[in-house]
Design a binder for these strands. Sequence first.
DNA 1: TCCTTTTTTTAACAAATGTAAAAGGAATGC
DNA 2: GCATTCCTTTTACATTTGTTAAAAAAAGGA
Lengths: 190, 190
Amino acid sequence: MNLLSEIVPRLNVLKDDDFAIADDVFIVNIYSAGDVILRPGLICRKLYFIQAGLVYAYSNDESERILWYEFGGNSFTDVISFYSRLESNIFIKVAENKTKIASISFDDLDTLYSKHHNWSIWGARFHQHELLRLTQYYESLRTKDASQRYHELVDTYPEILQRISLGHIASYLGISQVSLSRIRAGTQKK
Amino acid sequence: MNLLSEIVPRLNVLKDDDFAIADDVFIVNIYSAGDVILRPGLICRKLYFIQAGLVYAYSNDESERILWYEFGGNSFTDVISFYSRLESNIFIKVAENKTKIASISFDDLDTLYSKHHNWSIWGARFHQHELLRLTQYYESLRTKDASQRYHELVDTYPEILQRISLGHIASYLGISQVSLSRIRAGTQKK
DNA sequence: TCCTTTTTTTAACAAATGTAAAAGGAATGC
DNA sequence: GCATTCCTTTTACATTTGTTAAAAAAAGGA
């Protein structure tokens, strides 16, 4: 059984043979907390798939605003840098030890599409899923206020309060730590 | 020369033959201003490509917030409804007469992927482009304030002030009309 | 031209949120 | 135990933005 099949979703199309074919263009690495995957000024050349662990991104300005967290089972990249091949403006860092990640370059991915029909079907479906996932994420940013998003966050991942400081959660929610305290104290509209 | 090839981008992979193959699964329509393409409660079953004209979307709540405008050359759908196959929560309407649009259903698109390698390569690349485009749009929403976005809007489309009322522009920018007046008056930080 | 309607701006006030600073709590090390 | 440091909450104040309402300006019709 190929390692990759444990990390990259089959999306109802990939067979073991397809994973075998792609085995040499995906690279699997194990990272430690604090490892830097991407920094501003570099082009993000890879698409990443997390098998286990935790990764996060933050902005390059004074605010160092946390842009996202991604857990095992999800993929990530700097979408703007990777698909436009322009220099990144964000940091991507590993948050936990033994974070296990597979990655593939833009060119290798496109070559897979061209050479293997199944991989191009996978590519279409994968990017459809990502389009849906990203849109749902941004729409929840747009339509829900920080209070709602905070309560959903702790309902969905109650353990997150043990893993991430409230300062970082406030940054992730896009509000000041003072506002988050007010929300937690209930001094806030529901 | 096939009509479709004027509307659907080739993305460096589609040949005339591919358009001929797909001719019967794309439908081309001409709409009038005010025509409703999608309303809340329905599932958005199609992916649309605008050749010419203007289309916009707005929310289903009291605010009737304008979510986006799309011009000729771009594609659109209700991303969340189309890719999750759930009921839509938005309106999509045509804003100008003689708006010409090609469309294809989710299932027909997936069938094209399965049957034709070139179309699945196209699907992967198309959705990569859309992922980039959507992310750039939402990131500009996230990082720029209403004042910046207003000034960029009138710099990019000076004629827009003649075509769309300030009330609608404020809605599109996500602010009250009062705030937009303050921005225009210069009573606002740059 | 005059009246009506629509659009835009202005004013006044209230609510929400950020900044800065202080205080309280928890964890760690000596 | 005590001090230090880090994280979190609280307070005070200023800024921003929304709401409501009124005034001003623009557009259209008779």
